[in-house]
Write a protein that binds this DNA or RNA. Structure first.
Lengths: 253, 253
DNA sequence: CGTGGGATTGAGACGGGTCAAGACTAGTGG
DNA sequence: CCACTAGTCTTGACCCGTCTCAATCCCACG
């Protein structure tokens, strides 16, 4: 279709628009699914905020850019994670988000979230908890950026990924890094060279094995020791997802 | 008020004793005012979350502590700022907050906020925007911690303080740092020695004058240059406060 | 089979940390 | 009111972790 084609060429600036071929409305559902291919932006700073995104499959990275071009990756998202929340305050997205791999994403009109929040105490609670958790995550990451050494940050990063994959029912020890070394570096406040060296060193020390983007964690106790904490301490309560696997706004159970 | 009394008995650490003289219920108001003296904690990690705090006067610092004792100051709060929001997710505070100076703080039972949010679209919106803004702030600070040099972080910190004081109707160029060098260092991911050296150097360069905790900013253009940005860029839309100066939950205007 | 983006590895520089000594300041009690 | 003290701040010298710059390697993709 002509419109979609046109829009596609425009994606850089205007990724979110109506009437796209890849927007699949779910019957009787509160939100639609949209597919993004690797590298495609979901939203970018300043764009009018109208929807939240919930990852169904694939992965994303979010980042902010300073006026003079400094980039800080603020997080990586996988299935179940929500992005777009920071757009609420000013009705404009405050982060850039792009797909790291081909991904399917629930597109949640924020108006419906607000309505849901008004109708259901559970929805209200879930939405606010999701927002609050973002803050918590950010504070924990500030702790890493502000006080920890490169090796410790890296260990925490890897173990965090591992835990998240495990919670999704995937292997906690073997997975693929969807992002570039540079992305990891930006997230951890390091250069890509330092990231590379750290991975090499950890491999030399037998803590893990790395081959390009494929990682397998070999020595969890050692990694936790590097991270300076233990699994129990960081184990989060599972947060009920905003939408279920079919795209329904969650209901109280 | 009954709620306030109940809360007090539950407060884990020192600051609380029941039926305190410093809890002043405001007649016909939705929240009470409580006074905290310098160094007194408002809340600490793990404590049951039941209230938000809104600074009426004075100032606070919030920080998180890692398992092995690393401390990261996550923010400094002055009049109008809200703390306690990160407690929403797990019904337990996730940060420690202490008063930097003798302060008066509105104590907002969260149940009332939820009710307010359900009753009033304005309240709902304001609450969520407040939460989202926390995330935004954190992301901006992550950018500083992850990508910027010490001097740049310090300049940004000073200018941010300056802007906030200005917005409160105080001098934007002369103010008192309520926190220790160590607190500034922790906030900026630096050591207290580096903070001290930076202030000395900026004074030597004529950008500011510092005498203990008293600061006067002398050369704003230079400071903005160090900060690598400009005033307009960082000027936030004024966020309507959750409560007004009398402690009423805000109403739509 | 080329080609180019990404990753690795090395050598050197430097920002900020660490350690240590001294100065200042605000409380505190005499 | 002053002297004492403990906490805070400043400053210096040195060191180390990470960045920078650069060469090379690897691999996915055309």
């Amino acid at each position: 279709m002509a419109i979609a084609g046109l829009l596609d060429r425009n994606q850089r600036t205007a990724p979110a628009s109506s009437a796209r071929a890849d927007i699949v409305p779910l019957p009787h559902r509160t939100c639609s699914v949209r597919r993004f291919e690797r590298g495609e932006p979901l939203c970018s700073v300043g764009e009018p905020f109208r929807t939240l995104f919930v990852v169904r499959s694939g992965s994303l990275k979010s980042y902010v850019v300073s006026r003079n071009g400094l980039v800080q990756v603020t997080g990586f998202q996988v299935a179940g994670d929500v992005v777009g929340l920071d757009g609420i305050d000013r009705s404009a997205y405050q982060s850039d988000v792009v797909a790291l791999a081909d991904s399917a994403v629930f597109v949640l009109p924020f108006i419906q979230c607000e309505q849901w929040s008004r109708d259901s105490a559970y929805g209200q609670n879930l939405l606010m908890r999701t927002l609050a958790r973002e803050t918590y995550r950010s504070h924990q990451h500030m702790l890493a950026l502000g006080t920890m050494r490169a090796e410790q940050r890296m260990a925490i990063f890897l173990l965090d990924l591992s835990q998240r994959y495990e919670r999704l029912g995937l292997s906690r020890s073997e997975f693929v890094l969807g992002m570039l070394r540079q992305d990891i570096g930006s997230y951890l406040g390091l250069t890509l060279e330092t990231v590379s060296r750290l991975l090499s060193r950890m491999q030399r020390d037998g803590f893990l094995q790395v081959q390009g983007k494929s990682i397998s964690l070999l020595d969890f106790p050692a990694l936790w020791r590097l991270a300076g904490t233990t699994p129990e301490y960081d184990r989060h309560l599972p947060l009920d997802p905003i939408v279920d696997r079919e795209g329904n706004l969650a209901a109280a159970h």
